[in-house]
């Protein structure tokens, strides 16, 4: 069994949203020109992930999963609504983003000034929906674990975008080959940072050995290709 702390640390480092799964790359590339905007977007991602993943966790466990409707009526124990999960998750994400935007605008105008333009962007940030889908795939046992996962993923994303923005600010003063300027060099630097982050894979988490019956993830596919 993984402890909550394991899940949290894993989500930040060895299963970093950007470097291990490339989630949220579009906004990562588009909004990483200066550190200030990167911090704003990173904070907004943490915030939205922490709000949406637990809500989606409740939806998944009390509405969508096979047998999840049993608490309403024992006769509904064999109903499986999981095919609806994409549409439910994205609707939750889009509406919570809208709601958060309105609340922040009303009660914290200063924060809205800082996050404002990024909030609508976040509805279509892959890392938010990715967080919900990974939560579904990995079937966390409690809502606390799911929240720890979402907080960790958000912080991992934050670290990644702030780091690349800092590097891009510096690289403006270097002699990059003309054809690589901008997008090209950003890709290559992200690749190198990904390699650096792979060194975190060596961290030993909790007592658990390789999980035998866990669903196949991309990293396992990669490992099985290696063999």
């Amino acid at each position: 069994m993984e402890s909550t702390l394991d899940i949290f640390v894993k989500a930040i480092f060895s299963e970093n949203m950007i470097f291990a799964y490339f989630l949220g790359m579009c906004s990562y590339l588009a909004v990483s020109k200066t550190v200030k905007t990167a911090v704003g977007l990173g904070a907004a991602v943490i915030f939205v992930l922490v709000v949406t993943v637990p809500v989606n966790y409740l939806l998944e466990n009390y509405l969508l999963k096979a047998g999840a409707l049993e608490w309403l009526n024992p006769a509904w124990a064999d109903i499986d609504l999981s095919f609806l999960s994409f549409i439910m998750f994205i609707a939750v994400v889009a509406s919570i983003v809208q709601l958060v935007e309105m609340l922040v605008e009303k009660f914290a105008p200063a924060l809205y000034g800082a996050l404002g333009i990024f909030l609508p962007l976040i509805a279509v940030n892959c890392s938010i929906l990715g967080g919900a889908l990974f939560m579904q795939e990995r079937q966390y046992s409690t809502i606390l674990d799911a929240t720890a996962f979402s907080l960790g993923s958000g912080i991992g994303w934050f670290i990644a975008i702030v780091a690349i923005a800092a590097i891009r600010e510096k690289i403006r003063y270097s002699h990059v080959p003309p054809a690589l300027r901008g997008l090209g060099i950003t890709f290559i630097i992200t690749g190198l940072m990904g390699m650096a982050f792979m060194s975190f894979m060596g961290i030993k988490y909790g007592k658990d050995e390789v999980k035998k019956d866990a669903p196949v993830t991309t990293s396992q596919v990669i490992q099985s290709n290696n063999d």
Binding site: F22, F187, G191, M198
Partner: peptide, 8 residues
């Protein structure tokens, strides 16, 4: 096979 090479 590892993820970073896709970016490079």
């Amino acid at each position: 096979i590892l993820p970073p090479m896709a970016l490079i």
